[in-house]
Amino acid sequence: MPNVSLFSALAAAPAAQVSILINDRSFSVPNYMTVAAALLSVGVTQLRETPVSNAPRAPFCMMGACFECLVEIDSVPNQQACMTLVQPGMTIRSMIGARSLK
């Protein structure tokens, strides 16, 4: 879970902040971020484990091609974090293994 981020914020234009929940912890991030950018910026370096071998994975391409950044967003599993903008109150969970069938 969150530790030191691999990325640091550069001088940015003023932007509204939104509050999101990542694995039950609350974070405030700028509203222009995708979920993947938000996760990386707060230091979540690993956001899922593979269904095949439970290997740790994190965003790789940031443009919707690699599907490595799949997370659960507002209870919907397997969402591409890099293609989804953060929204106020969004609830994000990392996915460990395959999604469960409800």
């Binding site: 030191v4 981020s5 691999l6 990325f7 640091s8 914020a9 550069l10 001088a11 940015a12 700028p30 222009y32 971020m33 995708t34 950018a37 990386l40 910026s41 370096t45 690993q46 740790p56 994975r57 994190a58 965003p59 790789f60 391409c61 940031m62 443009m63 890099c82």
Partner: peptide, 21 residues
Amino acid sequence: PGVMGIGAAQTLLKSAALLPS
């Protein structure tokens, strides 16, 4: 985790104002 495309990092810079550590 920690291996990414250069294009991916550039996307983070362009769209999220994030710089590599």
